[in-house]
C-alpha cells in the first residue's frame, strides 16, 4: 500500500492503540450494518472518521485541525432520516472543508 507523498506530514500521528480502535470499529460496523437500517451507514462512517480524528488532534497540523473541528460538528446520532437535505448539505460542507485541507497540505496548485 502506498501513501501519496505529496500530501501532509509523514510523521506518525496515531499510535497502534488508536489505530486498532478505529480498525475494530470499521470491521464490526461492516458486520453490524448488514442487520441495521441503511441510513446508519453514513453515521457509522462519520463516527469512524471522528474516532480517527480524535486521535489525530494532538499532532495534527493546522489545516487538519480545522478539518477535525468541522468533523466534530456532526452529532453522534445524526442520520439522514430527520432532514435528508440538511444532512446532505452538512456532508457537502464537510467535503469542501476536506478539499480546503488537502489543498493547504499540498501547497499552491499551478494552473494547467
Amino acid at each position: 500500500m502506498t501513501v501519496d507523498a505529496s500530501i501532509g506530514s509523514h510523521n506518525p500521528i496515531v499510535s497502534e492503540a488508536a489505530a486498532i480502535e478505529v480498525l475494530a470499529y470499521l470491521i464490526t460496523a461492516a458486520r453490524a450494518q448488514m442487520d441495521e437500517a441503511a441510513e446508519y451507514a453514513p453515521m457509522r462512517l462519520i463516527t469512524a472518521a471522528q474516532k480517527l480524528g480524535g486521535h489525530m488532534v494532538p499532532k495534527a497540523s493546522r489545516p487538519v485541525q480545522e478539518l477535525l473541528r468541522a468533523l466534530d460538528t456532526f452529532a453522534p446520532t445524526a442520520t439522514p432520516r430527520a432532514d435528508r437535505d440538511e444532512y446532505l448539505a452538512q456532508l457537502d460542507g464537510l467535503c469542501v472543508v476536506l478539499a480546503d485541507c488537502l489543498l493547504a497540505l499540498t501547497g499552491p496548485v499551478t494552473s494547467e
Partner: peptide, 8 residues
Amino acid sequence: RLISPGMI
C-alpha cells in the same frame, strides 16, 4: 465497546 459500533 471496541466491537460495538452502536455503543455511544
